[in-house]
Design a protein around this nucleic acid. Structure first.
Lengths: 326, 326
DNA sequence: CTGAAAGCGCTAACAT
DNA sequence: ATGTTAGCGCTTTCAG
């Protein structure tokens, strides 16, 4: 048994196999443009297995100048099963390309992200929202090869307009299809969500414009029934149906309407588990998060390859789940 | 302007400051047991700032043998605001100790985790559930200094018995306090949740035993109203109140009872946003996730320091939020 | 108090 | 076809 305290290095494997480090390195990375006899290959592989050798990432990264870590900066807004599936699929796709996906929930707007980049020196960083100029500058400084929303322009979100305004558009279209002409768009007062909320509301506005209808009235509510009720009574008779930023807001709205003794059609977004148990069961816009994850991962791979990211998602990834609330 | 293609190294800083790399390293890490004149310190610091120098983690890790990354393996069960707050606080505490927290949502039971460890070679790995023997073995092989549930024994969960069975116990005690003597414990059929579900159900069983009551009947339901309704009618008159594994299950139960035309008190767990908008508003067990995060982080720091992890959480981190469902 | 120099484990160019 | 070797950027003795 080797010294219990020391890490097993490629030198150990070389010794065990009776070869040199170079050869070991070649077969372990099956470096292209080398002709290694199958017999030698096997010797190395078996020696490595016998010793339980694992390459040491920091050394490998230092030498080769590229790490195989891809960092996915998750937003700190509540994450549902949605996000989990998305991350999963993305991890799978990236894994096939030899990248290891690390997720990081970024909460504060402190500069914690900066430390992250230098701590990981990832091969790629991607997030669901545009990075700030400062963040981009920081990444440039530490030479991160690929960054996914590559610009701080709002339009460049991952999933492009679909993930954001596309959901709002679909919500509004659904309601319009049901014959409604005066809509409300309800967003939560959580400041973290305001950008996304605005984006989705704009999508709804577009749908209204396309149909020749007036813009939806945008209401901001606190996440309690009272605040929702206020908004509802505020609409008086001018609004006949409401889109909610997400299912939680929709649930709040439903509760508010119960309190206010009114009852308007409501459509949510995300299809959280609680949606189907609402009273009435919530009609909502669901997204195929697995497909979105795959899409994002492929976009990232494209960026790493210096190609056009082609962020736009296929419209098929979002669809409405019709239940009873609208 | 320096060569745009090259990374800025400590050599550059040394040159800029007119000193040697050694000195630069000393001040940048303010190595103990060194007396550096304030003037030199400032020269180095300013040169570093001017150049926008960032230490290169892989090199640092390679040399020092320890990385400053702590890896938090998140379970793939739905993550709410709860988890976000927990991670946040943990990141903060670890950050103060010079560690960078990376979260990783681990979904499959594939061996993706193994690759992660070698890709990051973190200083510490911790998770919310015990690692499997295989996982622990893998970590031992790559010499990860600290692993938080250190054993694969179920009792060793982070948060010890509190996070798991403590919640169940509190739910049952609350219902018992309301005069109920025949309880049900409802768990979802999601296999990923079965361990946790069993744990919480056991906590409830303990509370019943302490009160000299019979064990709760444990019902497994699919996450739809129909399945919940079946469970409810199955209880007939033998059960007078129910604990749910979490709020989503509680919501399903409420929907099931509406469908079955019955109405029993129900208590959930987690206090998700949707809970307060349920019909009736859901009584639930909430947890102070920030405090839990801090606790976990400190336990990890203790392990890194070769001390006893002392995982047990203070009882104060969980409490019931009384609303109308029970 | 500061500078020079030896590696950490690995890959890749260069020898053999 | 395999072996040798020069660093990647950093920390850390050891001299001066």
């Amino acid at each position: 048994m080797a010294d219990k305290k020391r890490r097993i290095t490629s030198v150990d494997v070389a010794r065990e196999a009776g070869l040199s480090r170079g050869t070991v390195s070649f077969v372990l990375n099956n470096t292209p443009g080398q002709s290694i006899p199958e017999a030698t290959r096997q010797r190395v592989l078996q020696a490595a297995a016998r010793l339980g050798y694992t390459p040491y990432a920091p050394a490998r990264t230092l030498r080769s100048g590229r790490s195989d870590v891809a960092l996915f900066v998750l937003p700190d807004w509540p994450q549902g099963p949605t996000m989990a599936a998305l991350v999963d699929r993305a991890a799978q796709v990236l894994g096939e390309a030899g990248l290891t996906l690390i997720t990081h929930v970024h909460a504060g707007h402190d500069d914690g992200l900066m430390k992250l980049w230098s701590a990981l020196s990832p091969a790629a960083v991607f997030g669901m929202r545009p990075f700030t100029g400062e963040e981009l500058e920081g990444m440039r400084r530490v030479r991160i090869p690929a960054v996914l929303p590559p610009s701080e322009q709002p339009g460049y979100d991952i999933g492009g307009s679909l993930w954001i305004s596309g959901v709002g558009r679909l919500q509004a279209r659904y309601l319009i299809g049901k014959g409604h002409e005066r809509l409300a768009y309800v967003v939560p007062d959580d400041p973290r969500l305001s950008a996304l909320g605005r984006g989705r509301a704009e999508g709804a506005a577009q749908a209204c414009a396309e149909a020749g209808l007036p813009e939806p009235v945008v209401s901001t509510i606190a996440m309690d029934a009272g605040s929702a009720a206020e908004a509802v009574v505020g609409w008086e008779a001018t609004v006949t149906a409401a889109c909610a930023y997400n299912d939680e807001v929709a649930l709040a709205l439903l509760a508010g309407m119960r309190a206010a003794g009114s009852s308007l059609p409501v459509i949510g977004a995300d299809d959280i588990p609680a949606a189907r148990f609402a009273v009435p069961p919530l009609t909502t816009v669901a997204q195929d998060s697995g497909e979105i994850g795959e899409h994002i991962a492929r976009a990232l791979l494209r960026v790493l390859n210096d190609e056009d990211p082609a962020l736009e998602l296929p419209a098929s990834v979002i669809h409405v789940v019709e239940r009873e609330s609208a």
